[in-house]
Amino acid sequence: MPARDIYHAAVIKALIADGWTITNDPLYLAYGGRELYVDIGAERVTIAAERDNQKIAVEIKSFLSPSPVNDLQEAVGQYEVYRSVLKELQPKRQLYLAVPKRVYEGIFSERFGQLILNSIGINLIVFDEQLERIIRWIS
Rank of each mutant, 00 (worst) to 15 (best):
M1P: 05
M1W: 05
P2I: 04
D5I: 00
D5C: 13
I6K: 13
Y7E: 01
V11L: 10
A14P: 11
L15T: 11
L15F: 09
L15A: 08
A17I: 01
A17R: 11
D18Q: 12
G19R: 11
P26D: 07
P26M: 09
L27Y: 14
L29C: 12
A30I: 10
Y31F: 14
Y31E: 13
G33Y: 07
G33K: 09
G33N: 08
R34M: 12
R34Y: 13
R34A: 14
E35H: 13
E35C: 06
L36C: 04
L36Y: 15
L36E: 12
L36F: 15
I40R: 04
G41Q: 11
A42P: 12
R44K: 15
V45S: 06
T46Q: 12
I47P: 00
I47H: 08
A48N: 07
E50S: 10
D52S: 12
D52E: 12
N53D: 08
K55E: 14
I56M: 10
A57R: 08
A57P: 09
E59D: 15
E59A: 12
I60M: 04
I60G: 03
K61F: 03
K61T: 04
F63Y: 15
F63M: 02
S65C: 01
P66Q: 05
P66C: 00
S67F: 02
N70T: 05
L72D: 06
Q73H: 07
E74D: 09
A75Q: 04
A75C: 04
Y79W: 07
E80A: 14
Y82C: 10
V85R: 08
L86E: 08
K87Y: 10
K87L: 07
Q90T: 08
P91W: 11
L95S: 10
Y96C: 07
Y96T: 09
L97M: 15
V99S: 02
P100Q: 02
P100E: 01
K101Y: 03
R102M: 00
V103R: 03
V103C: 05
V103A: 06
Y104S: 10
G106H: 02
I107P: 05
F108P: 08
S109P: 00
E110V: 01
R111C: 02
G113H: 06
I116V: 15
L117W: 02
L117D: 00
I120G: 01
I122H: 02
I122G: 01
I122W: 03
N123P: 04
N123K: 13
I125G: 09
I125D: 07
V126S: 02
E129V: 01
Q130D: 10
Q130Y: 01
L131A: 15
E132H: 06
E132L: 00
R133H: 04
W137V: 09
S139N: 14
S139I: 05
